[in-house]
Amino acid sequence: MKDLFSSGSELYRQARPQYSQAVLDEVLRHVSQRECAWDCGAGSGQFTQMLAPFFKHVMATDLSAAQLAQAPQFSNVTYQAQPAEHSTLGSASVDLVTVAQAIHWFSFDAFYAEVRRVLKPDGVIVVLGYGLIQLQNTELNQQVHHLYSDILGKYWDAERRYIDENYQTIPFPFKELQTPEISLEYQWSGQQLLDYLNTWSALKHYQKAQEQNPQMVDALAEIQHFLHNRTELWHVTFPVLLRTGVLD
């Protein structure tokens, strides 16, 4: 499992989109018992905090201790820095395993073996995430997609393709349950959009390769110029990637 987000953990926590109630409802409707949930690759706890009210105990793990340090605290949540492929959870102890925007970084075979070990016989695994941002404003959308594909294309890690392919090409060796199409929709300020773009791992790779600040990327500068002195909110949408399975 790669750790690309320890650097800039606070910005990641603040700028990444939050999952909706519709996503949470879809996850929970398959879970018959709610003793223990494992949120793996939890990062700064974006999805952990949504699970906390519904389970007696939530174990949230991530390779990055810096990310976990940004997560909100709950009396029934335990945060531990450990790899996805080797947890400290007991065998057949977990009702729900969730992986939010992280499965593409894992060693699939080793992680799924661990999932099979820790899940109860009627347990559920949910892999979720969000795809490429879409903006209602056509010009701004074109600029963001130009940055994503044309400027940063070669700087994305190879695993990013799984997101571009809507998680449909990841291995998923479970009995799969049908899930609906869901989108995340927000009204963002220009600064919120820029903060989100600055969490892109490809920008960090570009910065290292070019030895310059990501803000100096011409395509990003064009977006900054477009947003300069504009106070309106921008309608943004993220398609939700969602796969749900049970032991077969």
Rank of each mutant, 00 (worst) to 15 (best):
F108S: 05
L140K: 07
D150V: 11
W105C: 00
A113K: 13
R116A: 12
P121E: 06
V124R: 01
K154F: 12
D95M: 04
Y155A: 01
E139R: 14
T98K: 00
I125E: 01
G90A: 15
V97D: 00
V115A: 07
Y130Q: 06
A92C: 08
Q101M: 10
R117S: 03
K120W: 06
D109C: 09
P121S: 10
L152F: 02
N141V: 01
G123Y: 02
L132V: 14
L96G: 07
E85L: 06
A102V: 02
T98M: 02
I125T: 01
G153A: 00
R117D: 08
L140S: 08
K120T: 09
A113E: 15
V99E: 00
D109F: 04
G90K: 12
R117N: 08
I103P: 02
H86R: 15
I151L: 07
Q134T: 10
N137H: 15
A100Y: 03
Q136A: 15
L128K: 07
Q142E: 14
D95S: 02
N141D: 08
A110N: 08
R117P: 03
T138K: 15
I103H: 07
D150A: 13
A110F: 08
V118S: 09
E85F: 06
G153R: 09
Q143V: 10
S149G: 11
A100C: 02
G153M: 05
I125H: 00
V124D: 00
L89I: 04
H104P: 00
I133G: 09
H146A: 14
A110G: 02
T138S: 14
V124C: 09
S93M: 02
Y155R: 03
W156R: 01
G90C: 12
V118D: 04
L128C: 12
A102M: 05
D157R: 14
L128D: 02
I103M: 13
A113S: 15
V127M: 06
R117Y: 01
H86K: 15
V94H: 09
L119P: 04
F106N: 05
L135P: 06
H146D: 12
V97F: 05
S91F: 09
P121F: 01
G131N: 13
D122W: 09
N137L: 09
N141G: 05
L147G: 11
L132F: 10
L135V: 11
L140H: 05
D109L: 11
L132M: 14
G129P: 06
A113W: 09
A113P: 07
V99N: 03
L135M: 12
S91L: 09
G90H: 10
L96S: 05
Y148F: 14
G153Q: 08
I151Y: 12
H145R: 15
N141E: 05
D150P: 04
F111M: 08
K120N: 07
Y155Q: 11
I133E: 13
H145T: 11
Q101I: 08
L119Q: 02
D95C: 01
G131C: 01
Q143M: 15
F108R: 03
R116Q: 13
D150I: 06
H86W: 07
G123K: 10
K120M: 08
V94F: 11
Q136G: 05
T88R: 14
S149P: 03
Q134V: 08
H86G: 04
K120R: 15
A102S: 13
H86V: 13
A110W: 00
Q136T: 12
L132G: 10
V97R: 04
N141I: 01
G123I: 08
V126W: 05
V99L: 11
E85I: 04
Y148K: 10
